[in-house]
Amino acid sequence: MTRIALLGFGSVGQGIARAILEKGLGITVTGLADSRSGVIDASGIDLSAALDRKERGEPCGNLDISSMDVVEEAEYDILVEVTPTDVETAEPALGHIRGALQRGRHVVTSNKGPIALDYPGLQALAEECGVFLRYEATVCGAIPLIRAMQEGLAGNTITRICGVFNGTCNYILTRMAAEGLTYEQALAEARDLGYAEADPTYDVEGIDAAIKLVILADTVLGMRVTLDDVERTGITLLSPEALQLAEDQDCTIRLIGEIVPGAGVLQVSPRIVAKTHPLVVEGTLNAVTVETDLAGDLTFIGKGAGSTETASAVIGDILYIQSRHVQSS
């Protein structure tokens, strides 16, 4: 059994819990925390009871136990960090992750903050402590993009990465193109369907996509960049007329993140794309094309968000560590 401590019990955290309940997966949860409470139980926490408590709007555990208590006191092999992303401070995740690594525990996270802000520092700490730090879910949800590039494409030189990294923007642009909606109308629709936050800035200004580029650049391409290095334009000024002008030429407009390591290109901006291009995907899907010297071009398409879908990427990382490390120790 692999013992995990799960920090954050929202959409992703509950998705992970439900998958473990349904499929077992050789995983047991010995620590759990949300924003107000925590549970520590070396014999395994009752996940259905915890899910029921959240369902009723109650805290998942004991108000006297904090998330940091779980990090420091629970007995676990892997810390699973799925608390909200803070792009400026990366807290509370940064503290959680450092605490676990220093205790010699592996870490799996879906939280973009700490990876975008201090990947080199965290990776060095993980190596020093002889443990894994994995973050597949931080970029494009369910798509196993990072592992594909680090392992499947090992030996290749990646010359360019470009793609649709934000499902909210892709939904808005898809609807503007299909129905001639204004940006405001499409955004309102995305909010109604739960695809956009009450404050959509982070998505529509391209910040979320830019953070994903920073993560790919730092972790896969060996670059050393920060959010400020990304040239960024959002979709808020796009007009239905512009989409129509693109449509007249069998093209459309998508928010594209692009990295060309050799040319110093690191940008997020709306781009004109032929409708036949593989990156033109509908709705909230994500799509990424990776250009390489040996393998040629590869395009990955899949769900970039969602409770179960993001849990899939987190579980993939947990089982990766389980197969390589936990069992042999």
Binding site: C162, S269, P270, V273, A274
Partner: peptide
């Protein structure tokens, strides 16, 4: 002005 450039 906002310019939208082609991807390719």
């Amino acid at each position: 002005l906002l310019i939208i450039e082609p991807l390719e």
